[in-house]
Design a protein around this nucleic acid. Structure first.
Length: 626
RNA sequence: GCUCCCGUAGUUUAGCUUGGACAGAACGUCGGUUUCCUAAACCGAAUAUCGCAGGUUCAAAUCCUGCCGGGGGCACCA
């Protein structure tokens, strides 16, 4: 702990000690990175606050602060201006420290050490293909898992499959009663069933409401779990799920465990959860009024009663979610049985719960975590708040952190909606709908991105083979899509415009990847052995700016992990890449001589590691050439 | 009706948790840069009543109240 190299943290701790502040974090609350025309690398606004308490002018308070801050290790100069205290880094000293302490683990952190955390994401209904809205969920969830893993957490990733819903039944109705073939040659099951059968069956429901009876029939069979219809439903769920996982694998998204909603019922985990809730009085039976016969959970703030069990004794979604959350946190008596689902491209085994007693295998421990994150779209905030509250009440004082990581949906721009055959008004933003067939499939979109990038890559790289160009194009397509999904505030809706999304002119992932390629190019051409101490030549502004990015990286990661903030990492990458490209244009590396060359080469290597780590965390595929 | 979220250059946005100097970028526009490590790049210019109106404060994009505009949620639905 604390042994990891973080020059900014060290500096702020030093400031805290000298100014009698509690910690580096407290100092951070007084920092402004805007120094404007006054120069300096960062600025302290503490004097402005103190002047009020101490009843002295800010200028005087700033001078007092300044007087306590001389001779700091990484600070060359401190200045007091207009009540601000401005700091200049001593980059020579910083290079010295980095040359000793910089290694592969740079920027990692111990905040998650010894802690297990479960992240649930994706959780797409198993009746259709992944569309770009789902990708936002998975991109966020996967990036969070990479981030938390980077700072030392033991992360368990689950994908929760609702295999009991009407959507699954719709596909069964289509195949069993309406003559749709079970599969289509050359088309992935998720695409065929989701794009074709599901949409068409729902259209037929409108024409012929009597068909709904068939759906009820299928649903009932699924609930009972036995018979031909239930078996067909199970098979179709697996086929679609495998198709979805294929898309996710392409995106570089992987899981540890598949959870089925039906298993929560089959294992009687809802019943267990229900009786545990009754025991502590978290649910009550309504005895009169229009909710008579229902069991409700009364949440504290509004005193609203949320129905968990209908008067016919069946459980609603939120109920099953509570049981699932209890399982995650080890609050539920009992555990699932597990078996292997398959090996993933990242070399990690994917597991699934199983009902089959014989096929159970020796498995890792999945549940019983203190912390969990559920990446679920923001429209389900109400239900999620119920789950959170229930879990906290059931935890009996044990500290539990249940985070609903809500994010806004991806909607379609009018232009894009019209391309899908909708009649959108010029100002209308259209919500995607699987049932109505209004969506952009992730596979299709990736294919188009890939095609465009491939042409461009071939155009620009005559020395790369066809195969190499394909790898570059695929990596870039994935990186672009994933970066776009995490770079904006999750609370803001993304209005997806297909033409804009396919316009590669805009900065972002391509820019970052290009920067990485330039870094790799220099290192490749240097043909130089590592080793030896790092010389400290006279530094240019561009050198210093890059160094500043490098020393800020650990703090960016720490804050990102603490606040589950991916946007901060995207912002860091973008400005760091810009700093590097500026450096690249201005300062020769391989053409420099002697110490300067050795120093710059080291600087490029360090920069590459930092940017590669950041890119990997948000799920991009770092490239050495493009 | 009750409630939550969003509103920052033409466009996409950062900053809002914890108030502090002239609100950062990017795309697009206009102009410039290639005998030198990848021009998918670099440099420069123009572009912002931070939705509106009040309030708190020495100081508000940031906090509070009201309003306007946009989206979501409040089902024994899934």
């Amino acid at each position: 702990m604390g042994s990891r190299l973080d020059i900014v943290e060290e500096t702020l701790s030093d400031i805290a000690a000298r100014l009698n502040l509690s910690s580096a974090d407290e100092v951070r609350t007084y920092i402004s990175n805007k120094t404007y025309g006054y120069g300096g690398d960062f600025s302290l606004i503490l004097a402005l606050k103190e002047s009020k308490v101490k009843h002295i002018p800010p200028e005087k308070a700033a001078e007092e602060i300044k007087s306590k801050l001389s001779g700091m290790r990484f600070i060359k100069k401190v200045d007091a201006v207009n009540g601000y205290v401005n700091f200049w880094y001593d980059f020579e000293e910083i290079v010295k420290a980095l040359s000793e302490g910089f290694d592969e683990s740079y920027g990692r952190d111990d905040q998650g050490k010894g802690k297990r955390i479960m992240i649930e994401h994706t959780s797409v209904n198993p009746n259709k293909a992944i569309h770009i809205g789902h990708v936002r969920n998975s991109a966020i969830g996967d990036a969070l898992s990479r981030l938390l893993n980077f700072v030392g957490y033991d992360v368990i990733v689950t994908n929760y499959i609702d295999d009991t819903g009407a959507q699954v039944a719709d596909n069964v109705v289509g195949v069993k009663f309406l003559g749709f073939p079970r599969s289509k040659e050359g088309v992935k099951a998720d695409h065929y069933l989701g794009d074709e059968v599901y949409v068409k069956v729902n259209k037929l429901y409108e024409k012929d409401p009597a068909l709904m009876e068939k759906r009820s029939l299928v649903l009932k069979a699924m609930e009972e779990g036995s018979g031909e219809l239930a078996a067909l439903a199970r098979d179709m769920v697996i086929d679609v799920l495998k198709g979805q996982l294929k898309t996710m694998e392409r995106l570089g998204v992987f899981y540890d465990l598949i959870n089925y909603e039906s298993h929560i019922l089959a294992y009687k985990f809802w019943a267990t959860a229900f009786s545990q809730m009754k025991e502590i009085g978290a649910v009550k039976l309504v005895t009169d009024g229009d909710k008579k016969g229902c069991w409700v959970f009364s949440s504290s703030p509004q005193g609203d009663d949320k129905i968990l069990v209908r008067s016919d004794g069946t459980v609603v979604y939120a109920g099953k979610d509570i049981a699932y959350a209890m399982w995650k946190h080890g609050l539920l008596k009992g555990d699932f049985r597990y078996k292997r689902f398959g090996m993933q491209r990242n070399g990690k085994e994917l597991w699934t719960t199983t009902l089959d007693e014989e096929s159970e295998e020796k498995h890792p421990v999945f549940n019983g975590v203190d912390q969990s994150i559920s990446v679920v779209d923001i429209r389900q905030s109400y239900e999620q708040s119920i789950v959170k509250e229930a879990i906290e009440r059931l935890s009996a004082g044990k500290p539990i952190r249940y985070v609903h990581y809500g994010y806004e949906v991806v909607a379609l721009s009018p232009n894009t909606a019209n391309k899908l055959g909708m009649n959108a008004e010029e100002k209308d933003v259209l919500q995607m709908s699987g049932r109505k067939g209004i969506y952009i499939n992730a596979d299709d979109f990736l294919d188009r991105l890939y095609g465009l990038i491939l042409d461009e890559t071939k155009d620009k790289n005559h020395e790369l083979s066809e195969e190499e160009c394909k790898v570059v194009a695929e990596s870039l397509a994935v990186s672009v899509l994933r970066y776009e999904m995490i770079r904006t505030d999750p609370k803001k809706m993304i209005v997806f415009d297909i033409d804009e999304a396919l316009n590669l002119e805009s900065k972002g992932a391509v820019y970052i990847e290009y920067t990485l390629s330039r870094m790799a190019g220099i290192i490749r051409n240097s043909a130089e052995e590592d080793g030896g101490s790092v010389p400290i030549p006279d530094l240019s502004d561009a050198d210093r700016k890059l160094l500043r990015g490098i020393i800020e990286f650990p703090g960016v990661i720490k804050a990102a992990a603490k606040n589950l903030d991916l946007v901060g990492i995207a912002g860091f990458m973008s400005s760091f890449a810009s700093d590097f490209n500026n450096f690249y244009a201005k300062e020769p590396v391989l053409k420099a001589e002697g110490d300067l060359r050795r120093f710059r080469l080291w600087l490029v290597k360090a920069s590459k590691q930092v940017l590669t780590d950041a890119a990997s965390i948000v799920g991009m595929v770092p490239l050495d050439r493009m």
